[in-house]
Simulated assay, not measured.
Amino acid sequence: MIHEDAEPRVQRPERTATARSVLMCRPEHFTVVYRINPWMDPQLPTDTSLAMSQWDALYRTYLELGFDVQLIDPIEGLPDMVYAANGGFVIDNIAYGASFTYPERQPEGPAYMDWFRRNGFEVAEPEHINEGEGDFLLVGDTILAGTGFRSASDSHLELGRLYGREVVSLTLIDPSFYHLDTALAVLDGTPGREHIAYLPSAFDEPSLGILRARYPDAIIVNDEDASVLGLNSFSDGYNVVIASRALDFERQLRGHGYNPIGVDLSELLLGGGGVKCCTLELRR
């Protein structure tokens, strides 16, 4: 018997998990000895062993989800190499290499390109400044490309020529969200089912107009969750690995039919990175 005062059931969308292949780098040399983003403060102590432990929890989470996890060897003197997403952008077995803005990170570009070559990817060496999947996100058949702080807009044209796909440029305006993957998360990249989440205040008005028009059902994340890099998350279409402190984002994800999985990467946040920063997707 249905009582008249019973609440109607909310129909949640069907979400489908697809196992991913990703590249990661252990934070064996992680520390903060320079400042190239607002999150970094060399005066604050960092704990490399804690960073390793937290990173390992993320690594084990991916294995438990059935992901194929590849590892690149960390290089002493490159403490930010743990943020593998910045090492390139991979679609159709073609790896577009990174060319970093700051000298402190520039040696990472060749190191990642060498790994791609050794592991059977066709490598496209970049002509323009770009920081890989930190600023390039595949949503359906479209590449969303960030600019404003790191990747040059010329790299967006280079991307379009290389992959023959639509590239949509988005301008970031808040220094705390200096890469696109800190301000926007791809929740479902399946063509025809595209779904994202984002922080409106991170974008200029023309970019917001694009996002609102293309993704009217997007999840809007609040400042509090964005401030712990909650949007710097990684989804397989159903399971969404997020910062454990992004509680309202977690609530919204559940309401949209996803399975949020919280992890604590607070030590790596001291370098300005979170879940997605540590994760480069390998699309063969």
Rank of each mutant, 00 (worst) to 15 (best):
R150V: 10
Y238S: 05
D135S: 02
G257L: 08
A145Q: 00
S21E: 15
V32L: 01
S201W: 08
L137C: 07
M81P: 01
A152G: 05
Q11W: 04
D5N: 07
G255T: 03
E166R: 15
R60M: 01
G272C: 10
S244H: 13
M24N: 12
L23N: 13
L137R: 01
S244Y: 04
I2K: 13
Y34F: 12
L270C: 04
T16A: 11
L280Y: 14
Y34A: 03
V33Y: 00
L187Q: 03
W39N: 06
R165H: 06
V241Q: 09
A218K: 08
F89A: 00
D154I: 01
S53T: 12
D204C: 04
M52Q: 12
R165T: 04
P206L: 00
F89C: 03
L253V: 08
A202E: 11
H195W: 00
R12T: 10
D56Q: 13
V123F: 10
P191H: 04
D56V: 00
F203N: 09
F136S: 14
E133F: 09
V33L: 05
A57T: 13
A6I: 07
E281V: 15
E14Q: 06
F89Y: 09
D92N: 15
L138T: 04
D92K: 05
R12W: 09
V82Q: 00
A111G: 02
L229K: 03
M24F: 10
R214N: 07
R9F: 04
D68F: 09
L58T: 11
G209M: 06
L172S: 09
S201H: 11
Y258N: 14
G274H: 10
I91T: 11
R161I: 15
P74T: 04
Q70T: 08
V228R: 02
I210H: 00
H179A: 09
